[in-house]
Write a protein that binds this DNA or RNA. Structure first.
Lengths: 144, 144
DNA sequence: CGATGTCGTTAGCCAAGCTCATTAGCTAGG
DNA sequence: CCTAGCTAATGAGCTTGGCTAACGACATCG
C-alpha cells in the first residue's frame, strides 16, 4: 500500500513536470515554423520511412481524422507526399519528400535548441538520470 | 563538445517521451470531467491559495487571455470565484470555491489513476529514477 | 453475388493557444 | 492636481489540434 501511495504522489509530480515542460518547449518556435504535432508526425514518418495514415495515427496516438488534418498541413507545405498503395486501393502511402527531409533536420535542431541548452547546464549525474527516465517514460507511454 | 552532442540527443529523446506520455495521459478522462488545462489551473490555484489572473497565467505559462478563458470555464462550473482586489481595483483575486476543492480531489485522483497504475508496475529503482527526474524537469521547466 | 468490414476522408464540434485591441485603473512628473 | 503613460483584465477573432459521426470506395469472406 505504501507502494501505491508512492506511485500516486509520483504520478502527480511527473504529470506536473511534463505538462509544464511541454508548454515550455512548445513556446520555442523557429520562425516560419512547423507546429509541435506536425514536427512529431514528420519525425515518425521519417523514422519509419513510409506509413499509411492509420499507422501514423496509431504511432502518434491520435484518431485517424486528426492525422488527416495534420498530414494535410504537411502536404500543403510540400513536406509529405501521398502515393497510392500498390495493391489495396483504399490505402495511401505517406512519405516525407526531399524537401520534407531537409526542412525537418533544420527545424528539429532549432526546436531542440532551448531544451538542449538547459540540459547542458545540468550536472552529468542529472543528465544520466534524465537519460534513464526518458527511456522509462517512452516505455510507459507505449503501454496500453 | 561531446557534452553538447549528448545534450542534444537527450533533448530529442526527452521531448519525444514527454510528447507521447502527455498525449497518453490526456486520453484518460474521468467522466463529467475537467480538461487537462482546467485541472492544472485549479491545482495551481489551490496550491497557492489565491492568485490574480496574471500570476496564474505566469505559473501556467500561458498568456493572460488564455487564462481568462480557462478561468471562465471553471467559474461557469462554480469551481473558482473571482473577488475584487482590496486595494487595486484593476485586479481580481481568484480562489477555488469549496466545491472546487472537493471536485478537484476527486478528479485529480481519477486523472492520475492510469499513470499511477503504470508506475506501480515499475521496479523501485525505476521509480526512484523518475522521482529525481521529475524534480529536475520541474526545475528546467521553470527556467527562463 | 452480397454482407460485412476496413481505410481514408469530410463535416462539424469544442478546447486551447496566440495576437491585437479595448477599457479601467494606477502612478509618477511636471 | 492632472495628465501621460503603464499595467490588469478582458474581448474579438484566428489557428491548431483533438474528438465523434457518417460516408464512399474498396476488400474480403461466406
Amino acid at each position: 500500500m505504501a507502494e501505491r501511495v508512492g506511485a500516486e504522489r509520483l504520478a502527480i509530480a511527473l504529470r506536473d513536470a511534463i505538462t509544464r515542460l511541454n508548454r515550455r518547449v512548445r513556446q520555442e518556435r523557429p520562425v516560419g515554423d512547423l507546429t509541435f504535432s506536425q514536427l512529431s508526425a514528420l519525425t515518425s514518418l521519417q523514422l519509419a520511412g513510409a506509413l499509411t495514415p492509420r499507422e501514423l495515427a496509431d504511432v502518434e496516438r491520435v484518431q485517424p481524422p486528426t492525422m488527416t488534418k495534420i498530414v494535410g498541413k504537411l502536404e500543403d507545405r510540400g513536406l509529405v507526399a501521398r502515393t497510392p498503395h500498390p495493391t489495396d486501393r483504399r490505402q495511401v502511402i505517406l512519405a516525407a519528400t526531399e524537401r520534407g527531409r531537409a526542412v525537418f533536420a533544420q527545424f528539429e535542431k532549432a526546436r531542440n535548441e532551448w531544451l538542449a541548452r538547459q540540459l547542458d547546464e545540468l550536472s552529468s549525474e542529472d543528465r544520466d538520470t534524465l537519460e534513464r527516465a526518458a527511456q522509462i517514460l517512452q516505455q510507459v507511454a507505449r503501454a496500453e
